[in-house]
Nucleic acid binder design. Structure first.
Length: 211
DNA sequence: ATTTTCAAT
């Protein structure tokens, strides 16, 4: 089943509809995740697999991805008893929404147990991040602390996804209006979220400086 | 000016 998913390319309309970084993304009751799995061999990385997933019946797409990860990354967990060496992987994913707080927590826990997996996340839009004290914001900070680099997708990322994951029939990616402005706005917003001082950290820093 | 968000029906 997973191989079928992998070999399928996203229809153009679907990609545009779900990845459009518009301010008010009305009615998109689905989330898509395009991924590239790379195997790390010494200093080199080799593309191992790629494809896309969609959320299913009450399961957010990030957790669905974790479910498939064992199949996508053979040897990720190694065979401790026989002393077999674990294989290192790098995963980059491009998701139409940023993760909810629950997914962020589960991802952090998963990555903690899997130091030989590196994760890089690109998102098209920020999910429930409007309120200053939203848990989703905190989740993104947690992921960053867990070593995950999170970025908002820019033109070059959409362009890359179009070539890699979309059934584009060699047609060039055409940016929608405001792609750039929206990407810049969301990047600023994400930076503000990730740079937010933790109150405890701030107290520690002030104490250290003698205040 | 205001609008939405990994549905539920």
């Amino acid at each position: 089943m997973i191989t079928k998913l992998d070999s399928m390319l996203l229809p153009r309309k679907k990609f545009i509809y779900h990845y459009k970084n518009v301010r008010w993304a009305r009615g998109r009751h689905e989330t898509y995740l395009c991924f590239v799995v790379k195997r790390r061999v010494g200093p080199d990385t080799l593309t191992f697999d790629f494809g896309h997933l969609r959320n299913r019946s009450g399961c957010h797409v990030e957790l669905l991805f974790l479910r498939y990860l064992g199949a996508l990354c053979p040897g990720l967990w190694g065979y401790g008893a026989t002393g077999e060496k674990r294989i290192s992987y790098s995963v980059t994913w491009f998701c139409s929404w940023s993760p909810c707080v629950n997914c962020s927590i589960q991802l952090c826990q998963f990555l903690n147990k899997t130091p030989n997996l590196r994760l890089r996340i690109f998102v098209s839009r920020l999910y429930f991040c409007d309120l200053e004290d939203s848990l989703e914001r905190e989740g993104l900070r947690m992921l960053t602390k867990a070593g995950v680099r999170i970025s908002v997708m820019s033109y070059k990322d959409y362009f890359y996804c179009w070539q890699k994951f979309v059934d584009c029939k060699k047609s060039n990616f055409k940016a929608w209006e405001e792609l750039h402005q929206n990407s810049v706005r969301l990047t600023r917003k994400l930076n503000r979220i990730l740079q937010a001082w933790d109150l405890e950290d701030l107290r520690d820093a002030l104490k250290l400086l003698g205040f």
